[in-house]
Nucleic acid binder design. Structure first.
Length: 260
DNA sequence: ATGGCGTTAGAGTAACGA
């Protein structure tokens, strides 16, 4: 099975990139983030016409996630409250979570809040959101031991995942509190599939549009595919495909794929 | 140090991203 995560920064603007890439890379499930479109305006036909299945959970202008798959997914769950109940429904006002099952594998697609600046209101929201995410994944793990949790995490766990690590320590996406929150989640029994295959730094999934970030390879590795133990043992490959980042009018993120 | 670029909404700028 191949599962890909890709923050596309608007599904409508990036529609050709996504369909072209999928044509060349027919992965089982493509998890996209920042679709930036309401459900009624989602470009569903472009996928249906290519015999692809699509499940989406979006809002106007901001956020939004979708699952694009070769085969229909089952038990699709939109938002935290589909799993944890109405007590967490306020955390679903921003559309950042969708999940579905392919066979006995549950795929979770996340768009973790950016956090803006350390100590800002948005930063506190990010930390609060990650606490809810932990409860959500704990519940899903009880139900489905084969879990693939992927998405744009907006967190680099290690300094070697950042082009300029000396800036990493107290930077948004690299602060202690963010890293601790993510480590707590991984403590449930999830492991970074990318790190099964290399310890090297210098591998990135996002490059800033500004200051020629991609041309100068000034990037961050913030898009992750975490696997529960049952799947991690079977992981055969995890690769970052930087090609689409070099296309005309690209997303600032590029696809990352795990094979197990 | 700061800002740099791109998208959406909607009509000039503002919010947001990371």
């Amino acid at each position: 099975m191949k599962i890909t995560t890709w923050n596309v920064n608007s599904i409508r603007t990036r529609l050709e990139h996504v369909t072209d890439w999928l044509g060349e890379n027919p992965v089982d499930v493509l998890c996209v983030q920042e679709t930036k479109v309401q459900d009624k305006q989602f470009p569903e036909a472009a996928f249906r016409d290519r015999n692809l299945q699509v499940e989406f959970f979006g809002q106007k202008s901001y956020n939004g996630v979708a699952l694009i798959s070769q085969e229909p997914l089952t038990a699709v769950a939109r938002g935290f409250s589909a799993v944890l109940g109405d007590s967490v429904s306020e955390w679903d006002e921003q559309k950042r979570v969708i999940s579905g099952m392919l066979g006995d594998v549950r795929v979770v697609n996340l768009y973790v809040p950016n956090g803006s600046a350390i100590a800002s209101e948005k930063y506190e929201y990010k930390l609060g959101w990650l606490a809810v995410l932990k409860d959500y994944l704990a519940k899903l793990l009880e139900e489905s031991p084969k879990l693939c949790v992927c998405g744009d995490f907006n967190i680099a766990l290690e300094n070697k995942d950042i082009y300029k690590p000396e800036k990493g320590g107290n930077h948004i996406m690299a602060s202690e509190a963010e890293r601790e929150a993510l480590q707590e989640i991984l403590g449930l029994g999830l492991r970074d599939s990318f790190r099964k295959f290399t310890d090297e730094g210098g591998h990135y999934s996002w490059w800033d549009y500004r200051a020629a970030g991609f041309q100068r390879n000034r990037g961050w590795r913030i898009d992750h595919l975490y696997l529960s133990d049952a799947l991690y043992d079977d992981a055969a490959d995890c690769t970052i495909d930087a090609t689409p980042r070099g296309w005309e009018k690209p997303s600032d993120h590029t696809p990352v794929t795990v094979t197990f």
